[in-house]
Design a protein around this nucleic acid. Structure first.
Length: 211
DNA sequence: CACCAGGAATGTA
DNA sequence: TACATTCATGGT
C-alpha cells in the first residue's frame, strides 16, 4: 500500500487537497461535492461568497431559497441547502464557531454522523481536511483501486478505513495526499478498462474488471 | 441515448 | 446485514 502511495506521488505530484480558504469552506465543500463534479462545487462556493453566505451566522439564518440560488450548480436543490443550513445552525448553536466544534476531542465523528447529509465519507473528509485528524477518507475509487491492486480484502467502509489506519504512517499529510492521489488515479485511469493499459501502476494491478 | 460526479437517506429482504 | 432506489444538475 505504501509503495502505491510513493509511486502515485512520484507520478502525479502533490494534489494540493483540500482547496479552501477556511475550515467552514471545507465543510461546505464536503457536503456540496457529494455526487457532484468539483468544478460545480467551485462555482457554488463562489456564489456563496458573493452572496455573503460563507459565514456560519449568515448561512444559518439565510433563506433556504437564497442558499439554493448559490448551490444550484451542484444539484439536489431540495436537500443540500437544508443540509448546509442545518450544519451551520448546529455548530453555531452548540459550539459558537467552527474552531470550537473541530477542537472537540471525543465523539466528534459520531456528532458529524448525526447531522443530516453527513455520512461516513463526508464526516472523515471534514475530520481529515478541516480538522487535521487521522481519519482516512474512503471513497468509491479507493475501494475499487484497492481491490484491483490487491491490498484490500474487504468492502465495508470501516474495515477498509481500518486497513489504511494500521498500514499507513500516522501522518496527516500522508492521509490527505494519499486519498487525493487515489481519486486522481481513479479519475484518470480507472473509469473504463481501455485506459488501464496506460496506467502507471499496471504492474501491480491485478485486473481491470470486477466491479 | 446512457453514464457519471471527491454520497447519503430510505426502503426492502 | 446487504442491496436497491431516489435525489438533481451538468458534462462527456
Amino acid at each position: 500500500m505504501t509503495e502505491v502511495y510513493d509511486r502515485l506521488l512520484e507520478h502525479f505530484g502533490p494534489q494540493h487537497w483540500w482547496p479552501a480558504e477556511s475550515r467552514l469552506e471545507v465543510i461546505i465543500g464536503a457536503i456540496l461535492t457529494q455526487q457532484t463534479a468539483w468544478k460545480k462545487v467551485e462555482e457554488a462556493i463562489g456564489n456563496m461568497k458573493a452572496a455573503g453566505l460563507m459565514d456560519l451566522e449568515a448561512l444559518a439564518d439565510a433563506d433556504r431559497s437564497a442558499v439554493a440560488a448559490s448551490t444550484a450548480p451542484c444539484g439536489f436543490y431540495r436537500t443540500k441547502p437544508l443540509r448546509l443550513k442545518g450544519m451551520a445552525a448546529y455548530i453555531r448553536d452548540y459550539y459558537g464557531d467552527v474552531g470550537a466544534f473541530l477542537a472537540k476531542e471525543e465523539g466528534l465523528r459520531d456528532e458529524l454522523l448525526s447531522l443530516d447529509g453527513i455520512g461516513p465519507e463526508t464526516a472523515d473528509s471534514i475530520l481529515c481536511y478541516a480538522g487535521d485528524r487521522l481519519h482516512f477518507v474512503v471513497d468509491a475509487y479507493t475501494r475499487r483501486i484497492g481491490r484491483r491492486m490487491g491490498f484490500l480484502s474487504t468492502n465495508n467502509y470501516d474495515d477498509v478505513q481500518a486497513e489504511f489506519h494500521k498500514t499507513l504512517p500516522q501522518d496527516i499529510q500522508i492521509y490527505k495526499e494519499f486519498h487525493a492521489l487515489l481519486v486522481k488515479l481513479g479519475k484518470t485511469y480507472c473509469r473504463s478498462s481501455p485506459l488501464c493499459g496506460d496506467c502507471p501502476l499496471t504492474d501491480v494491478c491485478e485486473g481491470s474488471n470486477g466491479d
